[in-house]
Design a protein around this nucleic acid. Sequence first.
RNA 1: AGACUUGUUGUGUAAUGGUAGCACAUCAGAUUUUGGUUCUGAUAGUUAAGGUUCGAAUCCUUACAAGUCUACCA
Length: 506
Amino acid sequence: MNNFIIKKINKDINNGLSIKKIKFRFPPEPNGYLHIGHIKAIYINFKLAEIYKAKINLRFDDTNPYNEHINFVKEIKNNIKWLGFRWSKITYTSDYFNILYKWAKKLIKKKKAYIEYNKNNKIYNLYNIKENLYHFKQMKDGKYKENSYVLRAKIDINSPNYHLRNPIMYRIIKKKHYRTKNKWCIFPTYDWAHGQSDYIEKITHSLCSIEFQNHNKLYNWFLKYIYNKKYNNILPKQIEFSRLNIYDTITSKRHLNILIKKKIIKKLDDPRLSTISSFKKKGYNPKYIINFIKNIGYSKRYNKISINKLELEIKKKIIKTSPKVMVLFNPIKIIINNFPKKLIEWIYIKKNKNFKKQIIPFTREIYIEKNDFKEKYDKNFFRLSSYNYVRLKYSYIIKAYKIIKKKKKIIKIFCNFFKKKKKIKSTIQWISKKYKKKIKILDYNYIFFKKKKIYNKKSIKIIKAYIDLTINNLKLKKIYQFHRIGFFYLFKKNKFKKIIYMKKKY
RNA sequence: AGACUUGUUGUGUAAUGGUAGCACAUCAGAUUUUGGUUCUGAUAGUUAAGGUUCGAAUCCUUACAAGUCUACCA
């Protein structure tokens, strides 16, 4: 790994920062599920901790009781473990409410913070230290209503950077916090809490995504006034990297929550989403996701990536490990005329990944996939027709000679089989008529918003399909390769979830 | 509109001021009982203009483009 973040850290080391003091943190707010964008942040933080043999805190940034919940804390912990990362310590911003309150009073005394209040829709500021301290205490003690009083930092009301225009440090929220319960009714804002929490935890490099770059000056401004050499002599640095954007995929908690609110999806582990929980449920291996993140790298440039890249990554790996079975989505009947009527020929398949005892029956009447037959001559079509020889997987070569139609629809095709024939361009899957079994496949696409915030409605469907007799030997929670179709995860008896289709359609 | 940040083949990402490389995609060929996989090869790039320098993707200036912010969210 080589990127601008490592260079910055190495530069700090060259300038005298002890390697032993380097420390990182990953700070999600427990207000939703982590998605693929978060994996980018998780990977860089945990990987850097590994490289520098540094500590890394998992910090729950819980400064707004409105959307936060203990269940999200649990899910986030599970997600990070599932990805294969281990934190040094779990911390909560809410554990620092006391010290943040103390530091806020310090800022008031330094005339760097003041109370703003709203009376009869007019806004007033207080500049007297004693008055400020008094009202700040009243705010804390629950004497005022929400939206009536706030504590602001006194920086520069005319700054061209909006974040420096006397930003809010505390607001009143009269809602039960999942950890501090009703103890606090004033809550620090992100800007006031974040850098200070980094300083408390002795974080040296605070990595975040690019949208916080405008906060960088404010981050440093606060630290300047709370800095205490005896408490901690190293100031943390905020480093921003570009966020991950993926075509036709939702990568923002806000949009995910809209889907829940509008009842478009029921849960945040819906297979159409790119949350870590959905990846887990779909049978993805976390290694492949990490590999994808590794490959896209880190920079400050705006980037937009195709989700295809993740899927190709997965395909190349699982093709080596997933056993093959034959499945038909749209079967069409084939009668092999020169094959004995009552004969059942049992085919033993010896080598098929980790599959044991794979035996399939071949009979006179079989089914193949509808798209694998073409009535008219086409020089670019290599599968079954009256003009082509085609091989049935694990079995004989066949060629069509008669097509039976009913109301212009093909209902069956008569073929002859051949035992030996040289160059065959294509091999197709099939299932014996008497031995086909029904399965259901959950097929889906990533859900995304089109223009005007309309989502793609046809993002999920159930396909009824047929599988050969090997279904009896399949193991739950494993990925199988449907011959020439794609890769599917067996999540319940006779029920599969799509992982990825073979790419080319022909 | 302003402030901040960023501009490297189609996409993503490298290159102490010193040979512009890598991965994926695309195209071609080989292998193949999956039109898949694998293997080999090819195509293609420093946003523009000026400056500093023996030498600039890298430093400076200007223009242009993109992204972020302008919440009592994080």
